[in-house]
Design a binder for these strands. Sequence first.
DNA 1: GCCGTTTTCGGCCCGACTGTTTTCAGTCG
Length: 597
Amino acid sequence: MTAKYYSNIEIAELLRSVAAAYELKDAERNKFRIIAYERAADAVEHATSELKDLWDEGKLAEVPGIGPNIASHLDELFRKGRSKHFDEVMKGYSPNIFKLIKIQGIGPKTAYKLVTELGLEKSKDILKDVEKVSKKGRIAKLEGFGETSQAEITKSIVESKDKVKRILLPYAESIAYEVISWMKSCKAVERIDPLGSLRRKASTVGDIDLSVASDQPQEAIEHFTNYPKAKRVLEKGDHTASIIVTPEIQIDLMVQPVASYGALLQHFTGSKHHNIALREYAMKKGLSLSEYGIKNRRGKLKSYKTEEEFYQVLDMEWIPPELREDTGEIEVALNHKIPKLVELPDIKCDLQIHSDFDIETSHDLGESSMEEIIEKGNSLSYEYLAFTEHNPSKSGHSEKKIVELIKRKNEAVEKLNYSLVKDMKISVKKVFNSLEIDIMPDGSLPVPQEAFGYLDFALVSIHSSFRLSRNEMTKRILSALAYPKVKIFAHPTARKINEREGVELNWPEIFEFCRKNNKWIEINADPMRLDLPDNLVKEAIDYGIKLTLGTDAHHKDGLENIKYGVYVARRGWAKANDIINTQSLEEFEKLLKGGDK
DNA sequence: GCCGTTTTCGGCCCGACTGTTTTCAGTCG
């Protein structure tokens, strides 16, 4: 019998359910066991690989937060499809309890009361039934509940149904900047910053976090809750407030006086895991950290105006927000070895652009001409660019025709290069003739050998057959990468955020091949791709792989998305030297000629 | 239940806000 496949999301959910069950059994006695299970759930959600794959390789216990006990229960889960221990802990609790704790504002205790006292243990649709019961006013009559909490529960259930998934970074930025400009119209606001995942430049953002420096917090909070687009005020206190704006995006605000704003910046930038690790470290030194500042052994609080001072007290270098994910940055900061991360001005080119030069492509053609794109590249002070249209479609073209189309494009590029060399006013000195070539399911490339002769280099990527097994997929990629002119593996996981999961690959094998054969891996800067994802960027760099940035622009304005690629690179601990795009034209041409080793 | 740059035992981040309470429990980040 083959056991059920458990995804990381399902495993995290299961671990949270076990934590909730312990909480219901005896919260006081199980206090730290509950925390351990919740931490394990967090760890699973943040894991870079599917846990099932790690289990296959016997590396389950290598995930920090998963110790020998939980690892053995998960082992049983993967082998048999169930864990006796998990079942035992959750025994006697209706599964509906664990469904309800996913609703905002409902924790284990509330869920338990609702399900048992309303007799909903066997409900087939718990959310709908709680809503129904609530309409009859029965929740308000339960002990410990009232009219207000009944209304809150109903609202949260309704909102959970059309809750948007995590939103893409540019969208979150635009929402944040609207609120920021509203807040700036308030005199009490001295300074306002986007923090949380927005400041850490995560690829997706859940809630939008904003901080305000003000010596009149009430006024700032009042102004915030009066934001014209706020459709609901979730909470409103002395230092913090939360609102919901359409479409169901939560905005949290925290206010601190100017004198202790540094501690607030640190606290509210997170990540949660970074802060926990930081506070645990501080605790060992007898210090206690919070958004107010740092307390010494005697409980005396000192406030900090800047974040730099705050980290300095801990004997640490200031840590760039992009690195604050508790993936080793604290230890590195203690040793004063934080790398100098790549920055936007380091970027000298864009290595994936689709022009409107019609070579009858397999996928969508770009909308801007090569000349328009060069002009745009000049405005970004680029030295060179690569035109990387999709390959001519295989169906409906003879091999001869495909060669002819690519040759024609090559002539156009050569002509452009001839005029660029003479034009002293433009920063772009060279454009490259390249292609983004589809990798066929069998790993072959739909471009005849002869056509490669007209290319400076090629990108390869997957646009179909996403569901191959991990081994088949890995073989497929490796055989495509083995073609001579192929330099770049583009949008390697082929994920589309919120739409499609990435493919399963044996990354160590891919990285090893790339390192040996001098192939590069792309960080696609399209905000809905951001692929290679940041955690894999870090792994790739540890392997010694060079990465490229490409916007995948299909319009000249798309070239501006390069910054999102830089963010991903930074989150993956990339230095300028790890990114091919930071090389001068001369260096880049050398690297191309270096070819396959 | 996890974990180790003072520990393989003995600790475990820190605080805000709300509703239903008479001093706190539950939830969240």
